[in-house]
Nucleic acid binder design. Structure first.
Lengths: 143, 143
DNA sequence: CTTATTAGTTTACAACTGTAGTCACAATAA
DNA sequence: TTATTGTGACTACAGTTGTAAACTAATAAG
């Protein structure tokens, strides 16, 4: 799988990727139908997005003959991780904790997810610093 | 403070907001200098961004006379929460847990942050479902 | 007061996005 | 083998974003 870090997937493109990831692989017809039902998009719109994703090498065309099959080239997990990292990279490091807290509160998580997060946190607690420094401006500040 | 949900702050604009949030309030000169040092931007660029933020009502101009003071209208915490929610809204609900896990692992968190997250998780565990359903396509799927 | 300097407003412009129409060609049906 | 249709490629076009120059109005310096 190609490095998801190098590909920027836009909001509309995400919708298509989600469908492809979930289906595993799909024909354009299947995608067009799914996108029409999900987002009300015209066939053209889905085609364009699919095309852009191919150019970005986030998706690849398979099967030599005409009704091609489309498959993801970038993984869902990696892409999501990259998008999340990208977001947090733009925010104040000092606020990451409370932002994560907000996300956890507003999302549905399974028992397994929670157990996993608890394990990660327990481990992380061992080496956690007392304070995280604000990194918004040159020099030390507190935001 | 105005509802951060309604304002879309772009990547470049975020940089300016971070500076304003950290400084609490600032003159354009201060912002221009900070942005030049941080991002290497020309004065014009910062001015434009500041302007757009004013139009979006994310920032307000204060003080009647010429060297105006600029202050945030939207809060940092709310804006970050909105941005994070926006991101997770576009992703498969089923994958939120592992994405959060990745974020936690890659970010620096203080002891207090961790304790807070642990408390939230403990509470959330009480009512957590066994499974979270994939919401990428119509009908139940697993992605 | 006149001039120089700074701060604020307008305009610019290419790249990227969201959304979609049209054209061309391969596959299929007649 | 020709007409039809499904599928993929190319074109379109307005709005947003990143980046910045040019212009104008206010203030400070002389």
């Amino acid at each position: 799988m190609q490095d998801a870090k190098n590909v920027t997937i836009t909001d509309s493109e995400w919708m298509v990727m989600r469908a492809i990831w979930t289906m595993g692989h799909a024909t354009s017809r299947e995608l067009i139908d799914a996108m029409n039902e999900l987002e009300g998009w015209s066939a053209s719109t889905t085609k364009t997005l699919l095309h852009r994703l191919i150019q970005k090498q986030a998706v690849a065309q398979h099967g030599g003959s005409r009704p091609f099959t489309y498959k993801p080239v970038v993984g869902e997990k990696e892409s999501m991780a990259a998008a999340a990292d990208d977001l947090f990279d733009h925010m104040c490091a000092m606020r990451a904790g409370s932002t994560i807290a907000g996300v956890i509160q507003s999302r549905e998580l399974s028992r397994a997810d929670i157990a996993n997060l608890q394990a990660i946190l327990a481990e992380k607690a061992k080496t956690a610093p007392e304070e995280v420094q604000c990194n918004c401006l040159p020099g030390d500040q507190t935001c």
